[in-house]
């Protein structure tokens, strides 16, 4: 089975997010792999382990540091790594989807996995747009995939803890909410070994603009307006205070 994972490199929020002008200060922020993409790599490797095949991970190299992420993916069980060398830290999800779709097109995939969304823009567009560019169906919010020849059983999450099972025919683009198992750990020695031996295929981005056509007017951290009030005292006193508060708000 030919499995492709489209990933996204995004600014880390482990540090305070630095703002410069009307966007993130990309020069002073670390980039990390989108959390949902970690899930989707795990899901891809699980499918490969179940039915065989190859996993190709493809991403857009926005700041020239995508190799680390690709090495990690290879150490976790991916077989090939491809990067679109864009060097455009601010490229939006529409633009990235276009580049990713162009890279994937020649791979004739059976399944394309993409994280259902990313924490930097939260617009969940990469998956559906890749599907549109490749003229493939899309199913998002997925928490489990069992693939077979030409078909797959896909579990999709709904609100209220409900889940739906779909039988889909391949090829398909799947937006991964979570893998059925927590993403595996890749020991550093293995990642380092991969880094020394692996070759990463480079693709130049097409010049076609495909951005969302939106431009940012202002970016600012939220204004802190108040602090949480902590009730102290014995459990009885705290309970009394809570009751009092609820009453004062007209809730009890």
């Amino acid at each position: 089975m030919n499995i492709v994972v489209a990933i996204k490199h995004i600014p880390s929020i482990a540090d305070d997010l630095p703002v410069k002008g009307n966007n993130v200060d990309f020069d002073s922020v670390d980039f990390v792999l989108n959390e949902f993409d970690e899930q989707s790599i795990e899901q891809a490797v699980l499918v490969k382990e179940a039915v065989g095949g190859t996993v190709t991970v493809v991403g857009v190299d926005l700041i020239g540091e995508l190799d680390n992420v690709l090495h990690l993916a290879l150490a976790k069980g991916a077989d090939k790594a491809v990067k679109v060398t864009a060097d455009e830290p601010g490229a939006d999800s529409h633009q990235q989807a276009k580049w990713l779709a162009e890279a994937i097109k020649g791979m004739s995939p059976d399944i394309v996995f993409a994280g259902v969304q990313a924490s930097n823009d939260l617009d969940g567009q990469i998956g559906p747009m890749i599907a549109a560019y490749l003229d493939m169906p899309y199913i998002g919010g997925v928490s489990s995939v069992e693939a077979a020849e030409g078909t797959a059983i896909v579990t999709k999450e709904f609100a209220g803890g409900n889940a739906g099972k779909y039988s889909v025919s391949l090829p398909i683009v799947v937006g991964v909410q979570a893998a059925p198992k927590p993403p595996r750990y890749a020991p550093v020695s293995k990642v380092r070994q991969v880094a020394q031996t692996a070759t990463i295929e480079k693709i130049s981005p097409s010049a076609d603009g495909a951005g969302a056509g939106l431009s940012m007017k202002k970016m600012a951290p939220p204004v802190v307006t108040g602090h949480a009030e902590m009730f102290t005292g014995s459990s009885k006193e705290v309970a009394a205070k809570i009751v009092e508060l609820l009453k004062s708000k007209g809730l009890a």
């Binding site: 880390s12 482990a14 540090d15 305070d16 670390d30 990390v32 550093v188 990642v191």
Partner: peptide
């Protein structure tokens, strides 16, 4: 591995 500390804080 990424931050150099175990608390998921930025360097």
């Amino acid at each position: 591995a990424t931050n150099g500390n175990w608390m998921s804080k930025g360097k």
